[in-house]
Amino acid sequence: MNKNQLKNYRMFLAVQNTLDHNTTTWCGNPKFTETKKMLDIEIDGIEILGEEASKTTKGMTRDKNMIRSALEKKSIALAGTMSAHASITENETLKSILITSKGALENKKETDLVVYSKTLTKHAESIQKVLMSEYGVTSSEIEDVNTTIAEFQPLIGNAKPEQSAINAAKRDIDDHIKQGKFLLKDVLDKLMIRYQFTDITFYNEYQQSRTIVDV
């Protein structure tokens, strides 16, 4: 990432951290929740592309297709249990993001598969105690998905990317940053105004996290 991209990315992370630590304050607002989820996706996209843009070489230590297949299977298995839980608890928000079709995951682009699987494990970790006590899903199963993501992510793209591919990744980062800034400026910043009067501590933390610091 270039300097400007890195500054915005770090600001996004600071906002994400502030919101994650104040979930109970805003979770009752469906539009706030939806926008936060969209911001998380943009941040994940920047992270993945940032790693791609910084690489000059890329080695294949294992067969990429084999690792992708393993990631798909593990994600589907976890999503299946979570989908059942979402149905039982009538959690339509959770249910809407889950994919239990092998074909649907196979049709995803490599980057999109990683973004989805990361989102999946984040939600699984948030209900980990319930998954363990009521469905027998251990923490190691969730961690196994994360491990496979870490194995697959460096293999995205070609074995030896051309400079044009690196430049394309940087352009894609700009697209994610543009969308992230829109979500903040045009939606979350405005939704935060009410907390200036109802939860000033949260409001001040948010304003502080929105500050872009030079790197």
Rank of each mutant, 00 (worst) to 15 (best):
Y203L: 03
D112Q: 15
A14H: 03
E34T: 13
T25S: 04
D189F: 07
N91V: 05
E143Q: 15
V187P: 00
L191V: 07
Q179Y: 11
K64S: 11
Y135G: 01
S117N: 07
H123Y: 13
V215H: 04
V145R: 04
E106C: 11
N29E: 13
L39K: 04
P30V: 12
T81I: 13
R171W: 04
V15S: 07
V114D: 02
L120V: 11
G59T: 11
K109F: 06
N17V: 10
L131T: 00
D214Q: 08
S83H: 08
K55D: 01
G45E: 10
Q208V: 12
K185I: 07
L184R: 06
I173H: 02
L113F: 09
D40Y: 03
Y195S: 05
A77H: 06
V145P: 02
S83Q: 10
L184Y: 08
L113I: 10
T201L: 08
D175N: 10
V130F: 00
I127T: 04
K55P: 00
T93S: 14
T24V: 12
Q207M: 14
S96M: 07
L191R: 12
N4D: 05
Q208G: 03
E205V: 05
Y116I: 05
M82D: 01
K129R: 08
Q196C: 10
M11R: 15
E125I: 14
T121W: 07
I149N: 09
A79I: 03
M11L: 10
K118Q: 11
T24E: 14
T148W: 10
I173Y: 02
K73Y: 04
M192W: 08
T100E: 09
G157L: 10
W26Q: 01
I76D: 00
N91Y: 09
D112F: 10
M82W: 01
Q207K: 15
G80K: 14
K31G: 00
L191G: 02
H85A: 13
A86T: 04
L155I: 05
S140I: 08
K73N: 08
Q128A: 13
E125N: 11
N167P: 00
L120Y: 11
L78C: 00
K109Y: 05
G59W: 04
K55F: 00
G80M: 12
A77S: 13
K108T: 02
R171N: 13
T138R: 12
F32Y: 15
D214N: 12
E52Q: 12
T35R: 06
Q16K: 11
S117Q: 03
Y203N: 07
D214E: 15
K181S: 13
T211Y: 15
G28I: 02
L191P: 03
K37Q: 13
M66H: 08
I149A: 06
T24D: 15
E106K: 15
A168M: 06
I173D: 01
I212P: 00
T121H: 09
I156E: 05
G59F: 12
S140Q: 10
D144G: 01
A53P: 00
P161N: 02
T147C: 05
F197Q: 10
A84Y: 09
N2D: 14
S133W: 01
D44L: 13
I46A: 06
E143I: 15
A79P: 06
S87T: 07
